[in-house]
Amino acid sequence: MTILRHAISILLLPVTVVVVIPFLLLRTGDAPGGWGGGAGLDLVSRVAGGVLFGVGFALFAWCLLLFARVGQGTLAPWDPTRRLVAVGPYRHVRNPMISGVATMLLGEVLFWRSGRLALWACAFVLINHTYFLLSEEPGLQRRFGDSYRAYRAHVPRWIPRLRPWRG
């Protein structure tokens, strides 16, 4: 049942954000590569986009494993972690999973050179920032109390700290 919980949360959230919505935007919007610039720029953009997507996916997958193993929960708000996750990339930044998904989106923007995908990536970041301020962080504070308050005081929300927090 645990695998099913994770599969449902992955399909409903990051797959929708990184696969379904970009597919629909590309299908109905500007043609991939619509920024111009010729074959050389196209190749550089596709390689950079592929690398960024891979880095974002690796970060997302690492965070997903930490949520399952350390946090004993999923990425879904309706099935959250039972323990505060403050290890691995979470020692540098509070929201590395969202950073990973945003990096995948940025990779898609560069790979497809799509203005519509760029707007979607910006909207995704803005939506998540608002969600974290209004819902996620207050919920974490209620669930984890002083341990979350200490974590929040030392680990930035979006811009990673260079040295890991050793809380």
Score class of each variant (00 low, 15 high):
Met1Gln: 13
Thr2Ser: 13
Thr2Tyr: 10
Arg5Cys: 00
His6Val: 11
His6Gln: 13
Ile10Pro: 00
Leu12Ala: 14
Leu12Tyr: 00
Leu13Ala: 05
Thr16Pro: 00
Thr16Val: 15
Val17Asn: 03
Val19His: 01
Pro22Asn: 05
Leu24Asp: 02
Leu24Val: 15
Leu24Trp: 12
Leu26His: 08
Arg27His: 15
Thr28Ile: 12
Gly29Ala: 09
Gly29Phe: 04
Gly29Lys: 05
Pro32Gly: 11
Gly33Thr: 00
Trp35Leu: 15
Gly36Asn: 01
Gly36Gln: 03
Gly37Ser: 09
Ala39Phe: 05
Ala39Tyr: 03
Leu41Phe: 11
Leu41Ser: 13
Asp42Gln: 14
Leu43Ala: 15
Val44Arg: 13
Arg46Asp: 02
Val47Ser: 01
Ala48Gln: 04
Leu52Arg: 05
Phe53Asn: 06
Phe53Leu: 14
Gly54Pro: 07
Val55Pro: 10
Phe57Ile: 03
Leu59Met: 12
Leu59Ile: 11
Phe60Ala: 08
Ala61Cys: 05
Ala61Pro: 00
Trp62Val: 07
Leu65Trp: 12
Val70Lys: 07
Gln72Met: 12
Gly73Leu: 02
Leu75Lys: 02
Ala76Cys: 09
Asp79Ala: 12
Arg82Gly: 11
Leu84Ile: 03
Gly88His: 09
Pro89Ala: 08
Pro89Cys: 04
Arg91Ser: 03
His92Glu: 09
Val93Arg: 00
Arg94Thr: 03
Arg94Gln: 13
Asn95Lys: 09
Pro96His: 06
Ile98Arg: 06
Ile98Glu: 08
Gly100Asp: 00
Ala102Lys: 00
Thr103Asp: 03
Met104Lys: 09
Leu105Lys: 07
Gly107Asn: 05
Gly107Asp: 01
Glu108Cys: 03
Leu110Met: 13
Trp112Phe: 15
Ser114Gly: 10
Gly115Asn: 10
Arg116Lys: 10
Arg116His: 09
Arg116Met: 14
Leu117Lys: 04
Ala118Thr: 01
Leu119Glu: 10
Leu119Arg: 10
Leu119Pro: 02
Trp120His: 01
Ala121Lys: 01
Cys122Lys: 05
Ala123Thr: 14
Ile127Arg: 08
Ile127Asp: 07
Ile127His: 12
Asn128Glu: 11
Asn128Ile: 03
Asn128Trp: 14
Leu133Ala: 14
Ser135Leu: 13
Glu136Ile: 05
Glu137Phe: 07
Pro138Lys: 07
Pro138Phe: 04
Pro138Arg: 06
Leu140Trp: 01
Gln141Trp: 00
Gln141Thr: 15
Gln141Ser: 12
Asp146Tyr: 07
Ser147His: 10
Tyr151Phe: 08
Tyr151Asp: 05
Arg152Asn: 11
Ala153Leu: 04
His154Arg: 14
Val155Leu: 06
Pro156Thr: 10
Arg157His: 10
Arg157Cys: 10
Arg157Gln: 12
Pro160Leu: 07
Arg163Glu: 10
Pro164Trp: 09
Trp165Arg: 01
Gly167Arg: 01
